[in-house]
Amino acid sequence: MTPELLLAFVLFAFVTSVTPGPNNMMLLASGVNFGVRRSVPHMLGISLGFMVLVVAVGLGLGQLFETYPPLYTVLRYAGAAYLLYLAWKIANAGAPNGGEARGKPFSFLQAVAFQWVNPKAWIMAIGAITTYTPQENFLVNVVLIAALFALVNCPSVGLWTMAGSLLRHWLDNPRVLRLFNIGMALLLVASLYPVLSDL
Score class of each variant (00 low, 15 high):
Leu5Phe: 05
Leu7Ala: 13
Leu7Arg: 11
Val10Trp: 06
Val10Ser: 10
Thr16Cys: 01
Val18Ala: 09
Thr19Asn: 05
Thr19Tyr: 07
Pro20Asp: 03
Gly21Arg: 00
Met25Ile: 11
Val32Pro: 01
Asn33His: 14
Arg37Lys: 15
Arg38Phe: 02
Leu44Phe: 09
Gly49Gln: 02
Phe50Gly: 04
Leu53Val: 02
Val55Phe: 10
Gly58Glu: 00
Gly58Asn: 03
Leu59Tyr: 07
Gly60Val: 08
Gly60Asp: 06
Leu61Ser: 06
Phe65Ser: 02
Phe65Pro: 00
Pro70Lys: 07
Leu75Arg: 07
Ala81Glu: 05
Ala81Thr: 10
Tyr85Glu: 05
Ala87Asp: 02
Ile90Cys: 02
Ile90Tyr: 03
Asn92Pro: 09
Gly94Thr: 05
Asn97Val: 12
Gly103Glu: 06
Gly103Val: 04
Pro105Glu: 06
Phe106Pro: 00
Phe106Asp: 00
Ser107Lys: 07
Ser107Cys: 10
Ala111Thr: 00
Ala113Arg: 10
Ala113Cys: 13
Ala113Val: 09
Lys120Cys: 07
Trp122Ala: 02
Met124Ala: 12
Ala125Ile: 02
Ala128Leu: 06
Ile129Arg: 01
Thr133Pro: 00
Gln135Thr: 15
Leu139Thr: 12
Asn141Val: 07
Ala146Arg: 01
Leu148Ser: 10
Ala150Trp: 00
Asn153Val: 01
Val157Ala: 03
Gly158Phe: 00
Trp160Glu: 01
Thr161Asn: 05
Thr161Val: 06
Met162Tyr: 13
Trp170His: 15
Pro174Thr: 12
Pro174Ser: 11
Val176Phe: 15
Val176Arg: 15
Val176Gln: 13
Asn181Asp: 07
Val189Thr: 05
Ser191Cys: 08
Ser191His: 01
Pro194Gly: 06
Pro194Cys: 05
Ser197Gly: 08
